[in-house]
Design a protein around this nucleic acid. Structure first.
Lengths: 221, 221
DNA sequence: CAAAAAATTTAGGCGAATCTAAATTATTTG
DNA sequence: CAAATAATTTAGATTCGCCTAAATTTTTTG
């Protein structure tokens, strides 16, 4: 049913999946760029994935993941995000340090391992960056998230994702005591510099810059 | 300093290390047998490992791990056993189920991951099979272990290792409530069939077969 | 100790994944 | 809309790890 896949094949599948998410159309060059490889290598791999019916592909005409391919992609994303959750919540990594390690861990093959890890972690729904973790059927929560800049005044909202994974952002958010799951509301918006006066939970209000606000995504209750 | 190693190279290093433990002399054929490969492939790999100064090798004359090679081997063994400990203690795997998964996990490269995992697990000294876990310097506890058949009568001793990792053995030990760390003593030895009457902790005495006894290794306080 | 057996290495080849350079097809634009 | 440009694919090579078959060296043994 599920063909055996090498780590390289899995990386292509995951990359195509993610590129499809942001813009339905994916090109050979896009994939090459993301994977730090050359367009010629992508062509080679597309032929292989086509033979395994993981992508629909006609040369020079483009390609998309098959249903089969989508399922595989979701399984890989599931593993990646569960491991990220493990690394941050159990091993005390910072969220900016876990991506590369999870990139390796996601290729461990045991299905039982994934399910036991999921149980051990308490079936988390979101990873440390606020991205949803697919369940074993590939279902995941849709996040109706909006940028903090678009949140109405005095509307209580929960931080659910961040726009980047840089160390600098993490440092600032840690200092401000903001993390995924923090509830906040905006008291005032200053149009001059687009800074915001906000309060989190029951603490005193403080001000955040426009640059910080664009990096935060929230969901209304 | 440490050359980059592929998973295949690491597997050869670990195998040579283990074979050296039991019998100082290791042959090309031994390695081929352990790795389910052919002698010709081992020769190929030996040339590569020799070029990287991981083994000392002269053709037709034999080979051994260099100091460098030993260090690498110990680092791999450390990772393997820490992951086994994690799988059994945290994810509730049976000890007979974890070997193959740990075989994959041991090739994850991050050094800081290993140290954080070690902390998270509480710096365990022995893995679920009773084998010692090297520390980050490659040091590990020597186990002065003897076979249960050689334990003197009425001498209290701790189960520290098992001779096989079969499901059948695990099933029996679970039923008998014996595991790594269990304290026991022998009350009587029957020379007819080499069965033993033993007691664990403060429970009533019971009898175990010779076959079971040879599979158990204990250490005297 | 010489011939047979066993162990080891070399030679040559294969599939996976990558690359560069050249060829082909699609797209853009004057 | 034809020529230039961009995107994509093919051709041919390379490295890694493995294979089989043949050659070589070591070890065993009659």
């Amino acid at each position: 049913m599920i063909p055996h896949l090498t780590a390289a094949e899995e990386n292509y599948i995951k990359t195509i999946f993610h590129l499809q998410q942001v813009d339905g159309n994916v090109s050979t060059n896009d994939v090459a760029l993301k994977l730090n490889t050359k367009a010629a290598s992508v062509s080679d791999m597309l032929k292989k994935l086509n033979a395994k019916e993981i992508v629909h592909y006609e040369k020079y005409k483009g390609f998309t993941l098959s249903n089969q391919g989508q399922k595989i992609a979701l399984a890989i994303v599931r593993k990646h995000r569960l491991w990220e959750y493990f690394l941050v919540e159990k091993l005390q990594f910072g969220w900016d340090e876990v991506h590369d390690i999870a990139e390796e861990l996601e290729h461990i093959t045991s299905r039982v391992l994934v399910e036991k890890l999921d149980s051990f972690l308490g079936h988390p729904k979101f990873d440390p960056h606020g991205d949803p973790i697919p369940d074993s059927n590939g279902e995941m929560e849709k996040m109706e998230q909006i940028n903090l800049l678009d949140l109405p005044l005095n509307q209580l909202a929960e931080v659910v994702a961040v726009g980047s994974q840089s160390t600098e952002l993490l440092e600032l958010l840690t200092h401000r005591q903001i993390k995924i799951g923090t509830w906040l509301s905006i008291h005032k918006k200053f149009s001059f510099d687009h800074s915001l006066e906000i309060s989190i939970q029951s603490s005193p209000t403080f001000t955040i810059s426009q640059q910080l606000a664009v990096a935060l995504f929230v969901r209304i209750k």
